[in-house]
Design a protein around this nucleic acid. Structure first.
Lengths: 139, 139
DNA sequence: TGCAGTATTTAGAACAGTTCTAAACTTCTT
DNA sequence: AAGAAGTTTAGAACTGTTCTAAATACTGCA
């Protein structure tokens, strides 16, 4: 308490295995970039640029595959803020987003202090999956 | 009171002129489909299918142009709920959305009863543009 | 360790949604 | 009615993403 400890070990092969994914070199390289330091927001393109510059370059198709697999495994959350571009967020906990237009910058903010009251009940035959709050701001 | 009156006249050429847009046959045909009966959610494709079946077919490029112009003129609101697909909403008033996955159905709900408390202040140098709440539900 | 079996990676093609181009056509103003 | 400016159109181009099928890597087991 007080001192922040990593919530998960930095052993990326193990973390991938735990998520049901084989720890290939490519996935490990991507996981390192994504999860090694604090929370991040990436697009497939931005992550591809990063990993291309690294010691373990990875094809664009693999970046897309990995992002989709990480999301399906619960390691990432996909955030839809702009048409025709997918952002992935390494913060999978409860929180919401600022989206700065027109730059396309995305910032988290914690949901602890945010309360939403008066939401209607979901349409018949559906169950609630998630509530996304996007605060759009302009320069 | 009690009896619902149209908030705007159904004279589409005049409404378009008022929005700074020339009332061409194509724009009038699209405006009719969009605004003649209650609030609607469309995509460029869905509106194109509709207007193709009408007495005044319109090219896909024109549907895209018109939707973007109507949005810029404040006649429509663009709703981003899924990557790679833009929805346009004829309801430009304050309200939020249900998004039914995986069908892609979108439903309005009024914002009157919804209150959001505890939103942080926008990042330095930005001003608030809009708060979008998307309630994602699954079958 | 070596091998087979399965999963993964890759480059490039394919695809979906959207925007662009430039020639033909409308609309508006006079 | 004529000229100027704005609009429409088909198709090409573009962007972001997924697919294909051949090559390669990982895993479990002898």
């Amino acid at each position: 308490m007080g001192v922040t400890m990593p919530t998960t070990s930095p052993d990326f092969p193990d973390r991938l295995r735990a998520a049901g994914l084989r720890p290939t070199r490519q996935r490990v390289a991507l996981a390192r970039l994504l999860f090694e330091s604090g929370h991040r927001h990436v697009t497939a393109e931005s992550l591809h640029v990063e990993v291309k510059a690294s010691r373990m370059p990875v094809s664009l198709a693999t970046v897309y595959n990995a992002l989709n697999q990480f999301r399906d495994a619960g390691l990432l959350r996909e955030v839809v803020v702009a048409p025709g571009r997918s952002y992935f967020d390494t913060n999978t906990g409860h929180h919401h987003h600022f989206f700065v237009e027109p730059d396309g910058e995305l910032h988290d903010f914690p949901s602890e202090k945010v309360t939403i009251a008066g939401l209607p009940t979901p349409p018949k035959g559906t169950r609630l999956a998630r509530v996304d709050v996007i605060v759009r701001v302009r320069r």
